[in-house]
């Protein structure tokens, strides 16, 4: 059970990345490769807030959320906006990788290459729960991720803006013709994804440390979560993230310490091969 808790806690982080990908994907049709890097910056800002500035938990979380939200806005302006209306589809492929690399580099240059410990403000003593041990911070991380994931899922179906975002994912032109400002919606999605990533910086950092290349692994496992859950499905991404985390934890426990990445990679290849639309996605017929 301890393995399950560990898997769920790691999985929560992957779910967070998948959620961030999906928020942007749904509203603007862009895959933001740099989202995992936003989460990484979130952990550093949480460190700066909580340790360097010595702020209490709530202001530290707000600082990280605001900072990452602003960065996401900046990223949209520089890496996405100039490409809108361009026919070459893989422009964003390059520019968001560029943005991710800049964020990696900035983190390394500003905070150094050594991992930093981010204090969560929660007691460190592990709890006994359902036959396993789990740190309080992990429990909170799992709970809040579930809350945000399910909340976003419900919100996207039961609010006007959520509906508008689903509609513009289905057909941008038709959404514009209903008076939906699709561009603003896209910007809003970037900022929202940034705010969420920043707000979780403290909890994620408390589990993983703040380290400049954290984004790489997170980007990958977040993408595996999307592959499992199906692109554009908030609920799918949430479940996919937890599933990836569990696979990772069980592979580490039962196959060997060095193997979890390889096992996840094998699962990833298998899913792409067998269910390319994800376990929750549906196949779409191509239209000319």
């Amino acid at each position: 059970m301890t393995t399950v808790w560990a898997g769920l806690a790691t999985g929560a982080i992957y779910s967070l990345v998948a959620i961030g990908y999906n928020v942007v994907l749904l509203a603007s049709g862009t895959f933001n490769f740099a989202h995992a890097q936003l989460l990484m910056i979130g952990t550093f800002l949480a460190y700066t807030g909580a340790v360097t500035l010595g702020l209490p938990v709530v202001p530290a979380v707000l600082l990280a959320a605001a900072g990452v939200g602003a960065l996401a806005l900046l990223e949209e302006r520089t890496a996405i906006r100039p490409l809108l209306g361009r026919s070459d589809a893989h422009g964003a492929l390059i520019t968001t990788v560029g943005a991710a690399t800049i964020l990696d580099g900035l983190a390394a240059a500003l905070w150094g290459r050594q991992p930093l410990t981010v204090p969560s403000g929660l007691p460190d003593r592990p709890l006994e729960l359902l036959g396993g041990t789990v740190r309080p911070v992990d429990l909170v991380l799992i709970g809040l991720t579930l809350l945000v994931g399910v909340g976003l899922h419900l919100w996207s179906r039961h609010s006007l803006i959520g509906l508008a975002s689903l509609a513009s994912a289905e057909d941008r032109d038709a959404a514009s013709a209903r008076g939906i400002n699709v561009r603003l919606l896209g910007v809003g999605a970037f900022v929202l994804a940034g705010l969420i990533a920043g707000a979780f910086g403290l909890l994620v950092g408390a589990r993983t440390y703040a380290v400049f290349n954290l984004g790489h692994a997170l980007a990958l496992f977040g993408f595996v979560a999307i592959a499992i859950g199906g692109a554009g499905s908030q609920l799918g991404g949430l479940i996919g993230g937890f599933a990836t985390g569990l696979i990772y934890a069980f592979a580490a426990r039962y196959v060997g310490e060095a193997y979890p990445q390889l096992v996840v990679f094998a699962v990833f290849l298998l899913i792409l091969f067998l269910r390319p639309r994800g376990l929750f996605g549906t196949a779409l017929e191509r239209r000319v």
Binding site: G91, I94, T95, G98, T101, I102, G105
Partner: peptide, 20 residues
Amino acid sequence: QDWQLVIYGTFLLVAGVLFN
């Protein structure tokens, strides 16, 4: 050296936006 990643990233971003 410390800014190497930033420089690569800027290359990608600028090249991707300006001259593809």
